[in-house]
Simulated scan of single mutants.
Amino acid sequence: MRPDSVRLAARVPGWLLTAAAVIGCLLVVGAGIYALIRLLVVIAPVVLAIVAALLLSALLGPLARRLRALRLPAWLASLLTVLLLLLVLLGSVVLIGVRVLSQFSDLRRQLAAGLRRLHDMLVSGPLHLDERQITELTNAGERALRSAIPGPAAAANAAEILTAGVLTLLLLFFVLRDGPTAWQRATTLVPQHRRTRVTAAAAAGWHSVTWYVRGIVVIALVDAIGIGIALVVLRVPLALALVLLTFIAAFVPIVGATVAGTVAVAVAFVARGPTTALLVLAAVLLVQQLEGHLLHPLVMRRAVRLHPVVTLLAIGVGTLLAGIAGAVVAVPTCAFVYHAVAGYRAAARAELALPAPPTDDDTDAEE
């Protein structure tokens, strides 16, 4: 090093050199994380298919193991599990489609009556809108509806979603059939002195994901059944479709239940009027309070143990990166990472607490 450089380095405070080094390291790490995120966004359908297959395997794994216990071959047990899942999904869609088609004429009449009721409320209600303002709102709604009509881009997105769905089912089959064997082979790539810690970390993370998936299914069923009973009792149309929407929306924590409840209240208002809408709103709030104060603490606290702020941030980041699918997989991904790190540290502490193996000198001394 030149003398001038030595004198210049001596004049720079040590804390400034340390801060510069830390900032430089953070910039390099941040650039690497950004590049990784961009790569994951590019291959987002494949990544989401992998994550969805893993989540479904956590849910359907016990069924596949029970079929294996009946002495079925591994490939047959996995295939039957995947076919059962596909049958449930397609059966739900067909059942709802048949119900909607059978009620189409009634729905059209109720929609027309609901729109007239909404027009009267806008004119004579607290807003006191005039016909020109109502016409502007109607035109804006028509433009939004026309823009939402599927076009070539939507067809491409539908093909992409269909491809991701088929890939998810194929991956689910192979995970159910070869999951344990593939993991044992993967652990052979880890150095021997780290293998125990990595295995403990993966087991802890996978255990949390399994509990999360089972817990969220229980919560989704309770939400769908509770709100569905209220919709059926109040004779709200499209009750089955709203029940399915509630069940699916429950897989997006915090946000999904609010969206599904809003849709149910809107349909009740248009079809049955404000009194029915208020009763549906009361039922939705009651179910959500039951979920938030009883089900989540009992079912999800053991699995996730994440602060609500972390959950909200994870949902926001997942939505920005991959839309609704990203919001669904964000929380279990964070839970897996958190519990995997905790499991790795616990295994490391357990290894350090173990007594050291005896050496040759100790053995000779004992003799």
Results as ranks from 00 to 15, higher is better:
Glu136Phe: 12
Leu83Met: 07
Gly326Cys: 01
Ala271Thr: 06
Leu352Pro: 07
Ala200Tyr: 04
Val123Arg: 06
Ala239Glu: 07
His293Glu: 11
Val51Trp: 00
Leu101Glu: 11
Glu367Leu: 14
Ser124Val: 10
Ala148Arg: 09
Val166Trp: 13
Val6Gly: 12
Ala64Ser: 12
Phe336Val: 00
Val12His: 03
Val280Arg: 01
Ala140Gly: 07
Leu16Pro: 06
Leu137Ser: 12
Val175Glu: 07
Gly256Asn: 01
Leu89Cys: 13
Ala283Asn: 01
Tyr212Glu: 08
Gly316Asp: 10
Ala204Val: 07
Asp223Gly: 03
Gly165His: 06
Glu351Asn: 12
Leu240Lys: 06
Leu56Ala: 00
Ala156Pro: 05
Leu16Thr: 10
Asp360Glu: 14
Ala10Arg: 10
Gly273Ser: 05
Ala257Pro: 04
Val190Lys: 08
Ile254Lys: 03
Ala239Trp: 03
Leu85His: 03
Val337Pro: 04
Ala346Lys: 03
Ala52Val: 11
Arg301Ile: 07
Leu39Tyr: 12
Ala182Phe: 13
Leu320Thr: 09
Asp120Lys: 13
His128Cys: 07
Gly97Leu: 02
Gly24Tyr: 09
Ile216Trp: 01
Arg301Met: 10
Leu60Met: 07
Leu321Ile: 10
Leu79Gly: 15
Val304Ile: 11
Val42Lys: 07
Ile227Ala: 00
Ala113Ile: 06
Pro191Cys: 12
Leu83Ile: 06
Pro358Met: 00
Val259Gly: 02
Ala112Cys: 09
Ala264Gly: 06
Gly273Phe: 02
Leu67Lys: 02
Ala356Ser: 10
Gly30Met: 14
Ala53Ile: 02
Phe104Arg: 15
Val88Glu: 00
Glu131Trp: 15
Ala204Gly: 08
Leu76Ala: 15
Ala202Ile: 07
Ala204Leu: 08
Arg235Asp: 13
Val236Trp: 03
Arg65Phe: 13
Arg11Val: 11
Pro45Thr: 04
